[in-house]
Design a protein around this nucleic acid. Sequence first.
DNA 1: ATTGTGAATGTAATGTTATTACATCAATTG
DNA 2: CAATTGATGTAATAACATTACATTCACAAT
Lengths: 136, 136
Amino acid sequence: MTTQHMTTQQLTRNQGLVFDVLSHSGSPLSAYSILDKLRDSGFRAPLQVYRALDKLLEFGLVHRLESINAFVACAHPEDGCHAHGLTAFTICETCGKVDEFHDHVIEDRLKGFAKDRNFKTGKTTIEIRGTCAGCA
Amino acid sequence: MTTQHMTTQQLTRNQGLVFDVLSHSGSPLSAYSILDKLRDSGFRAPLQVYRALDKLLEFGLVHRLESINAFVACAHPEDGCHAHGLTAFTICETCGKVDEFHDHVIEDRLKGFAKDRNFKTGKTTIEIRGTCAGCA
DNA sequence: ATTGTGAATGTAATGTTATTACATCAATTG
DNA sequence: CAATTGATGTAATAACATTACATTCACAAT
Ligand SMILES: [Zn+2]
Ligand SMILES: [Zn+2]
Ligand SMILES: [Zn+2]
Ligand SMILES: [Zn+2]
């Protein structure tokens, strides 16, 4: 299991259920709202959700939106989002719509900053909260 | 009270206490650890901290680090950080050290993205977690 | 087949972060 | 003084996340 060609079929039951809920949601969901949606499928405790999310994040199938404590399915999970480098998001505070994008200029610029300061970069968060075109 | 030339002298007692704690801390603090540090000054409840923080954020004297649920004093609060446009942070996961920086290239790039999509930008978060030079 | 191993799961309890609700107090102003 | 506004005190609750421990499952080595 190489993490490379991770498809939804090799997910465990719990991982699959969580991914499914996120994939079919039009907006990001909190761990507890995922839990609520999966009660009928047998979920009982937050940890079942958090464990599945941890794996899905690791696989690059899901993103965590730090500024709103919520999770969203990757927009192009074919090969896991890890392949695409830095990920940024717009988050509509009215309708919840999230757009994911990747920009090499920003990525390089941040890399440069880190290098200048000898800062070893781990995970980077870029989130723009505001109002989407449809809600303006 | 114009919000423009807000200095620490026109803060209320609670706001001043919270700002003081943050200013003298070498690393970001959670609301609850601020509360603990202010017990002796009479603080009893989380809300006293959160209310002060709300105002300090509004004044641009303090930043919230979304990815670690913590708060840090602005690196150059002279005129409130609002004057400096987009703010980004490096956050050392080992020692807690935070550096604040401002980059117009990134700012313009993000503005461009938002404009292209007719997305009305509110608050933007850029946080790089990793390891600082001193901790490498 | 048995046993050893690591990954995943179930469940309860607890820890951490943030908000709601409501009463009170202080400063300003007409 | 009455009215308004902003700040404060306190308690309760909500929302988000982790620790701890027991159990089960998949799969390889013997
Ligand atoms: Zn993605
Ligand atoms: Zn919207
Ligand atoms: Zn600042
Ligand atoms: Zn460090």
